[in-house]
Protein backbone atom coordinates (compact mmCIF):
# COMPACT_ATOMS: atom_id res chain seq x y z
CA UNK A 1 0.00 0.00 0.00
CA UNK A 2 1.38 3.36 -1.02
CA UNK A 3 2.23 5.77 1.74
CA UNK A 4 0.53 9.09 1.15
CA UNK A 5 2.11 12.27 2.44
CA UNK A 6 0.21 13.75 5.30
CA UNK A 7 -1.63 16.85 4.18
CA UNK A 8 -4.32 18.89 5.79
CA UNK A 9 -7.64 17.86 4.34
CA UNK A 10 -10.02 20.79 4.36
CA UNK A 11 -13.51 19.49 4.41
CA UNK A 12 -15.87 21.10 6.79
CA UNK A 13 -17.07 23.32 9.57
CA UNK A 14 -14.54 21.96 12.01
CA UNK A 15 -11.74 23.38 9.87
CA UNK A 16 -12.98 26.96 10.02
CA UNK A 17 -11.30 28.00 13.30
CA UNK A 18 -7.89 26.89 12.08
CA UNK A 19 -8.39 28.63 8.74
CA UNK A 20 -9.45 31.84 10.45
CA UNK A 21 -6.47 31.52 12.75
CA UNK A 22 -4.18 31.52 9.71
CA UNK A 23 -5.28 35.14 9.16
CA UNK A 24 -5.74 36.45 12.67
CA UNK A 25 -3.38 34.33 14.71
CA UNK A 26 -6.14 34.25 17.31
CA UNK A 27 -6.98 31.43 19.61
CA UNK A 28 -9.54 29.13 18.10
CA UNK A 29 -12.26 30.12 20.52
CA UNK A 30 -11.95 33.73 19.34
CA UNK A 31 -12.42 32.67 15.73
CA UNK A 32 -15.50 30.67 16.60
CA UNK A 33 -16.95 33.77 18.21
CA UNK A 34 -17.03 35.54 14.82
CA UNK A 35 -20.63 36.66 14.53
CA UNK A 36 -21.11 35.67 10.91
CA UNK A 37 -19.44 32.27 11.05
CA UNK A 38 -22.46 29.99 11.40
CA UNK A 39 -24.68 31.95 9.05
CA UNK A 40 -21.99 31.85 6.38
CA UNK A 41 -21.43 28.16 6.90
CA UNK A 42 -25.10 27.19 6.63
CA UNK A 43 -25.54 29.34 3.52
CA UNK A 44 -22.54 27.93 1.68
CA UNK A 45 -22.94 24.38 2.92
CA UNK A 46 -26.68 23.89 2.54
CA UNK A 47 -28.49 26.78 0.87
CA UNK A 48 -26.62 28.60 -1.91
CA UNK A 49 -26.29 27.03 -5.34
CA UNK A 50 -22.74 28.10 -6.15
CA UNK A 51 -19.88 26.19 -7.74
CA UNK A 52 -16.21 27.17 -7.58
CA UNK A 53 -15.73 25.60 -10.99
CA UNK A 54 -18.38 27.88 -12.49
CA UNK A 55 -18.05 31.19 -10.62
CA UNK A 56 -19.54 33.13 -13.55
CA UNK A 57 -22.58 30.92 -14.12
CA UNK A 58 -25.34 33.47 -14.80
CA UNK A 59 -27.83 31.27 -12.94
CA UNK A 60 -25.77 30.89 -9.77
CA UNK A 61 -27.16 32.17 -6.52
CA UNK A 62 -25.60 35.46 -5.40
CA UNK A 63 -24.33 36.00 -1.89
CA UNK A 64 -23.53 39.62 -1.02
CA UNK A 65 -21.52 40.22 2.12
CA UNK A 66 -22.61 43.79 2.76
CA UNK A 67 -21.07 43.94 6.23
CA UNK A 68 -17.62 43.68 4.71
CA UNK A 69 -15.42 44.25 7.72
CA UNK A 70 -13.87 41.30 9.53
CA UNK A 71 -14.28 39.02 6.48
CA UNK A 72 -12.03 36.27 7.88
CA UNK A 73 -14.91 33.84 8.40
CA UNK A 74 -16.04 34.56 4.84
CA UNK A 75 -12.61 33.83 3.39
CA UNK A 76 -12.39 30.67 5.48
CA UNK A 77 -15.75 29.41 4.23
CA UNK A 78 -14.73 30.22 0.65
CA UNK A 79 -11.56 28.20 1.22
CA UNK A 80 -13.45 25.21 2.55
CA UNK A 81 -15.82 25.38 -0.41
CA UNK A 82 -13.04 25.49 -2.97
CA UNK A 83 -13.09 29.14 -4.07
CA UNK A 84 -9.72 29.87 -2.42
CA UNK A 85 -6.65 27.80 -1.69
CA UNK A 86 -6.21 27.52 2.08
CA UNK A 87 -2.56 28.60 1.89
CA UNK A 88 -3.65 31.87 0.32
CA UNK A 89 -5.16 32.79 3.67
CA UNK A 90 -1.61 33.21 4.99
CA UNK A 91 -1.19 36.23 2.69
CA UNK A 92 -4.09 38.04 4.33
CA UNK A 93 -3.89 41.86 4.15
CA UNK A 94 -0.42 41.96 2.64
CA UNK A 95 0.24 44.21 -0.34
CA UNK A 96 -0.02 41.58 -3.07
CA UNK A 97 -2.77 39.55 -1.44
CA UNK A 98 -6.22 39.20 -2.94
CA UNK A 99 -7.57 39.04 0.59
CA UNK A 100 -7.87 42.32 2.45
CA UNK A 101 -9.65 43.60 5.51
CA UNK A 102 -12.58 44.25 3.19
CA UNK A 103 -13.34 41.87 0.31
CA UNK A 104 -13.02 42.93 -3.33
CA UNK A 105 -15.06 41.17 -6.01
CA UNK A 106 -12.52 42.12 -8.67
CA UNK A 107 -9.87 40.15 -6.80
CA UNK A 108 -11.51 37.16 -5.13
CA UNK A 109 -13.32 34.43 -7.09
CA UNK A 110 -16.77 33.82 -5.69
CA UNK A 111 -17.00 37.23 -4.04
CA UNK A 112 -19.97 38.99 -5.61
CA UNK A 113 -19.43 42.54 -4.31
CA UNK A 114 -16.65 44.61 -2.89
CA UNK A 115 -17.86 45.89 0.45
CA UNK A 116 -16.75 47.67 3.58
CA UNK A 117 -18.62 50.94 3.44
CA UNK A 118 -21.88 50.10 5.15
CA UNK A 119 -25.27 50.26 3.51
CA UNK A 120 -24.33 49.36 -0.05
CA UNK A 121 -25.05 45.65 -0.28
CA UNK A 122 -28.81 45.69 0.12
CA UNK A 123 -29.48 48.37 -2.52
CA UNK A 124 -27.16 46.51 -4.88
CA UNK A 125 -29.00 43.31 -3.99
CA UNK A 126 -32.33 44.90 -4.89
CA UNK A 127 -30.97 45.88 -8.29
CA UNK A 128 -29.44 42.47 -8.76
CA UNK A 129 -32.71 40.73 -7.89
CA UNK A 130 -34.63 43.05 -10.22
CA UNK A 131 -32.16 42.40 -13.03
CA UNK A 132 -32.22 38.63 -12.59
CA UNK A 133 -36.01 38.68 -12.48
CA UNK A 134 -36.15 40.73 -15.69
CA UNK A 135 -33.98 38.10 -17.36
CA UNK A 136 -36.07 35.21 -16.08
CA UNK A 137 -33.25 33.74 -14.02
CA UNK A 138 -34.50 31.74 -11.03
CA UNK A 139 -31.53 32.31 -8.74
CA UNK A 140 -31.59 33.72 -5.23
CA UNK A 141 -29.88 36.85 -3.97
CA UNK A 142 -28.85 36.67 -0.33
CA UNK A 143 -27.48 39.78 1.40
CA UNK A 144 -25.80 39.68 4.80
CA UNK A 145 -26.02 42.88 6.85
CA UNK A 146 -25.32 43.67 10.47
CA UNK A 147 -27.82 45.14 12.91
CA UNK A 148 -25.67 48.26 13.26
CA UNK A 149 -25.22 48.48 9.51
CA UNK A 150 -29.00 48.60 9.27
CA UNK A 151 -28.77 52.15 10.63
CA UNK A 152 -27.66 53.39 7.21
CA UNK A 153 -30.63 55.02 5.49
CA UNK A 154 -29.84 53.42 2.15
CA UNK A 155 -30.95 50.08 3.61
CA UNK A 156 -34.37 51.44 4.38
CA UNK A 157 -34.84 52.72 0.83
CA UNK A 158 -34.08 49.18 -0.28
CA UNK A 159 -36.29 47.47 2.32
CA UNK A 160 -39.25 49.59 1.27
CA UNK A 161 -38.87 48.95 -2.43
CA UNK A 162 -38.13 45.23 -2.14
CA UNK A 163 -41.24 44.78 -0.05
CA UNK A 164 -43.52 46.82 -2.29
CA UNK A 165 -42.24 45.08 -5.42
CA UNK A 166 -42.48 41.63 -3.87
CA UNK A 167 -38.91 40.58 -4.62
CA UNK A 168 -39.31 37.01 -3.41
CA UNK A 169 -35.92 35.89 -4.70
CA UNK A 170 -34.25 38.34 -2.34
CA UNK A 171 -33.22 37.29 1.15
CA UNK A 172 -31.62 39.47 3.79
CA UNK A 173 -29.91 37.91 6.76
CA UNK A 174 -29.32 40.37 9.58
CA UNK A 175 -26.61 39.16 11.92
CA UNK A 176 -27.82 40.78 15.11
CA UNK A 177 -25.14 41.10 17.76
CA UNK A 178 -26.88 44.04 19.40
CA UNK A 179 -24.27 46.50 18.19
CA UNK A 180 -26.66 49.22 17.00
CA UNK A 181 -25.92 52.08 19.40
CA UNK A 182 -29.50 53.30 19.66
CA UNK A 183 -31.08 49.89 19.30
CA UNK A 184 -34.16 48.81 17.34
CA UNK A 185 -37.31 49.25 19.45
CA UNK A 186 -39.59 46.31 18.75
CA UNK A 187 -36.74 44.33 17.25
CA UNK A 188 -34.97 44.30 13.92
CA UNK A 189 -37.49 42.01 12.22
CA UNK A 190 -40.27 44.55 12.73
CA UNK A 191 -38.62 46.90 10.18
CA UNK A 192 -38.98 44.25 7.52
CA UNK A 193 -42.41 42.93 8.48
CA UNK A 194 -43.92 46.40 8.29
CA UNK A 195 -42.74 46.68 4.68
CA UNK A 196 -44.24 43.36 3.63
CA UNK A 197 -41.31 41.02 4.07
CA UNK A 198 -41.66 37.48 5.31
CA UNK A 199 -39.40 37.18 8.29
CA UNK A 200 -38.23 35.23 11.22
CA UNK A 201 -35.76 35.61 14.07
CA UNK A 202 -33.62 32.60 14.90
CA UNK A 203 -30.58 31.64 16.93
CA UNK A 204 -27.69 32.62 14.69
CA UNK A 205 -25.62 29.70 16.03
CA UNK A 206 -28.25 27.01 15.38
CA UNK A 207 -27.52 25.49 11.98
CA UNK A 208 -30.79 23.66 11.60
CA UNK A 209 -32.81 26.68 12.65
CA UNK A 210 -30.92 28.85 10.17
CA UNK A 211 -31.44 26.29 7.41
CA UNK A 212 -35.17 26.12 8.12
CA UNK A 213 -35.40 29.90 8.11
CA UNK A 214 -33.54 30.23 4.81
CA UNK A 215 -35.61 27.58 3.07
CA UNK A 216 -39.12 28.41 4.21
CA UNK A 217 -41.69 29.29 1.56
CA UNK A 218 -42.36 33.00 1.12
CA UNK A 219 -44.08 33.44 -2.24
CA UNK A 220 -44.52 37.05 -3.31
CA UNK A 221 -42.47 38.47 -0.46
CA UNK A 222 -38.76 39.01 0.16
CA UNK A 223 -37.38 37.08 3.11
CA UNK A 224 -35.68 38.52 6.19
CA UNK A 225 -33.82 36.22 8.55
CA UNK A 226 -32.64 37.84 11.76
CA UNK A 227 -29.81 35.72 13.12
CA UNK A 228 -29.36 36.60 16.77
CA UNK A 229 -25.89 36.00 18.21
CA UNK A 230 -24.07 37.01 21.37
CA UNK A 231 -24.00 40.78 21.97
CA UNK A 232 -20.85 42.41 20.68
CA UNK A 233 -18.49 43.39 23.48
CA UNK A 234 -16.78 46.27 21.75
CA UNK A 235 -18.78 49.32 20.82
CA UNK A 236 -17.77 52.20 18.63
CA UNK A 237 -16.51 55.06 20.80
Amino acid sequence: MQVVAVTTVISGYADLPELIGRMTGDEKHAAVATSTLDVLWVLYDRVLRVDPDRPDDPDRDRFLLSKGHAPMAYYAVLAVKGFLRPDELDTWATFDSRLGHHPDRALVPGVEIGSGSLGHGLPIGVGLALGLRAQGRPCRVVVLVGDAELEEGSNHEAIQVAGRLGLDRLTVVVVDNASASLGWPGGVADRFAREGWAGTTVNGRDHDALYTAFTRDHPGHPLAVVAAVEPKEYRHP
Partner: peptide, 25 residues
Protein backbone atom coordinates in the same frame (compact mmCIF):
# COMPACT_ATOMS: atom_id res chain seq x y z
CA UNK B 1 -39.42 44.58 -15.41
CA UNK B 2 -36.96 46.91 -17.12
CA UNK B 3 -38.38 50.39 -16.46
CA UNK B 4 -38.29 50.84 -12.71
CA UNK B 5 -39.38 53.90 -10.78
CA UNK B 6 -38.01 53.49 -7.26
CA UNK B 7 -39.61 56.61 -5.85
CA UNK B 8 -37.62 59.41 -4.27
CA UNK B 9 -34.78 57.14 -3.19
CA UNK B 10 -31.57 58.29 -4.81
CA UNK B 11 -29.12 56.13 -2.87
CA UNK B 12 -31.16 53.12 -3.94
CA UNK B 13 -31.41 54.52 -7.48
CA UNK B 14 -27.66 54.34 -7.98
CA UNK B 15 -27.11 51.22 -5.87
CA UNK B 16 -29.80 49.32 -7.72
CA UNK B 17 -28.30 50.54 -10.97
CA UNK B 18 -25.05 48.88 -9.96
CA UNK B 19 -26.96 45.72 -9.07
CA UNK B 20 -28.71 45.68 -12.44
CA UNK B 21 -25.30 45.92 -14.08
CA UNK B 22 -24.04 43.02 -11.95
CA UNK B 23 -26.99 40.96 -13.21
CA UNK B 24 -25.82 41.49 -16.79
CA UNK B 25 -28.12 44.30 -17.86
Amino acid sequence: DRVLNLGIREQLLVGAGGGLALSGL
